[in-house]
Design a protein around this nucleic acid. Structure first.
Lengths: 342, 342
DNA sequence: ATGAAAGCGCTAACAG
DNA sequence: CTGTTAGCGCTTTCAT
């Protein structure tokens, strides 16, 4: 006995319709704010709904309309403030337009990413946003086969799946090197970027190496930090290895501000003056970069803007207003010079 | 012409069934890993599915089974590393059990929270996890009326809705005060906790005031930081106001580690020695607290553990293994003493 | 181990 | 402005 009479079955639309004395279509119209319904009828319906504790079933509506109202999103780690900010903007702007986010954390694991993307697609999202990862062959195949818009963010992959909203992690790191060289630095090292499944870290390191070569300098001072996620603790640990590797190093570029801050703190503990004895640069323009002492030179990747632009693109695509050809948008990260390198 | 013949309509289960030469029920069994199906038949089905690019429709399955496989979660701000860690653990453990997270950011806004909870419930989640907020009357009413488990986290509300997994923000702050008093501090100030819609911040401040009173000290040195979210910048800005308010202050308790770090950095800029001239304590045990110089005394709220425990409770409740009476679990935050206060 | 029929709760597509 | 009918894609139930 699960049902009826007075047996706690949650009310469905038909119950509400009967209670008000209209058809389910009228109730449906009332709930969707559609025109073509008498305002008083609607008010009566909504009042009665409240009274009965009726909750509209979006699952049934989705099935019937073949529109889930979901947008799927993958990030390597929601604990990263940069990605969190992207998700926050994306989620906020989509939410204003009646779309909900389905979020998945890949934890920088390509197999987990494959599994999660599979789960996400079963929910029939209307679009999928991916923080560029190291996709498995099967992941790539699944993504190429899907009929919904696919938007890769936070990078400019050589072989995009469809749309891209990102920037060149390599070039931005190169600009940081240019700046340091212009300051007169010659011995420059790079910390991080060796994490196996983090494309952005890898490209920052590649960008460093390429820029050093371009300047005719030795780009082999690379200090590894291990598997992602790499944070402040890894930055702090890196200092000893850096000094062992290059006792005369003048400047260090870090794969992120978090690593840079860890390194900075380690310097402070050892009495190494920054930027006097060692210039330090980060990446990402995290809050900490403009608060710590000295403030960190870094690159602002416009995390929030990436989220907004992805939201904008999705909304246009879903309205059918979008271009036939895939979008490839470079949001252009911005070099931010602060005291840690001058 | 949207359909048929060769017109790109995505395959549904019936198409796959026909292609393999079985009924949809057999396909359904194959996809749900259920027993009662010939392993070879299943393999044939899965192979063909891959070939056709069939994607199982979880929406239809949800509707029919009346089981969405969703767990709804609200946080004030996913950009906060503490909440992000809770969500990460929760999401990870639920994902292992076939449940997906529906996440909403309230942005510390009770009306937005009400709206978002409404949206979430329409998706028929199987449970809802709420970071305790300042609920509107209507929000509270909706939550009391729902048939699914409601779990409030990150606090121990006086009037819980159902289940609670949290800790006393007030008591933990009191313990911090006890520690400072034991160190010989008398003039102690509190920074933050005045944000209108942040219950935890408010309780930390109340806990401070109560503890000062308990020690017979003046608990009126309160430095406001404005509406949440409150971060490093607000902490840095607070130093001037703190010194204007209490030029002889010996110690300061901050509403979070982020605020504490901002304040610490401002001290460093002004040449105020920490803890020599001013002891500084935070809250939350963020990464930064154990990396910065000096390392911060703080309270570890066990963000990850809160997420795990919520996941565990949900899984038990959904299996029907749980107690009749609402759970009220104090995860017990931990005082962490570091150099910033000794 | 497999299949046929019915229906989950809602809405498109038509009336009127 | 309101109602009727059919059916979204899957799974429950009951057969075989």
């Amino acid at each position: 006995m699960t049902t009826d009479g007075h047996g706690r079955r949650p009310p469905r639309m038909a119950d509400l319709a009967k209670a008000v004395g209209v058809s389910t279509m009228t109730v449906s119209r009332a709930f969707r704010g559609k025109a073509g319904i008498n305002p008083e009828t609607r008010a009566r319906i909504l009042r009665k709904a409240e009274e009965l504790g009726y909750v509209f079933d979006a699952t049934a509506a989705s099935l019937r309309q073949s529109r889930s109202g979901f947008v799927a999103v993958t990030v390597p780690s929601i604990n990263n403030a940069n990605f969190a900010e992207t998700v926050r903007q994306l989620s906020g702007e989509l939410s204003q337009n009646g779309l909900q986010i389905l979020l998945a954390n890949t934890e920088y694991d390509p197999l987990e990413e494959e599994r999660l993307i599979g789960e996400l697609l079963r929910r029939k999202p209307e679009a999928i946003v991916l923080t560029v990862g190291q996709y498995t062959r099967r992941t790539r195949q699944i993504l190429r086969a899907t009929a919904i818009p696919v938007i890769e963010i936070w990078d400019l992959p050589a072989e995009p799946i469809q749309h891209v909203i990102g920037f060149s992690n390599a070039k931005c790191t190169g600009r940081l090197v240019d700046h340091l060289v212009a300051q007169g630095c010659r011995g420059i090292a790079f910390v991080g970027g060796d994490s196996p499944h983090d494309p952005r870290g890898g490209q920052r390191r590649e960008g460093f190496i390429a820029a050093m070569r371009r300047h005719g300098l030795d780009g082999s001072a690379l200090v590894p930090t291990g598997p992602a996620p790499v944070g402040m603790a890894e930055g702090a640990d890196a200092l000893d290895r850096l000094l062992a590797l290059r006792p005369t190093v003048q400047a260090v570029v870090c794969v992120s501000d978090l690593v840079a801050f860890g390194l900075l703190s380690a310097c402070q503990r050892r009495g190494i003056a920054v930027p006097g004895q060692l210039a330090v640069a980060g990446f990402g323009n995290y809050d900490i970069a403009r608060i710590c002492v000295p403030r960190l030179t870094t690159t602002d990747a416009h995390a929030g803007r990436i989220g907004s632009m992805a939201a904008g693109l999705i909304l246009r695509l879903l309205k059918g207003e979008a271009p036939e050809t895939p979008v490839r948008f470079d949001v252009g990260a911005e070099l931010i010079l602060r005291e840690s390198t001058r």
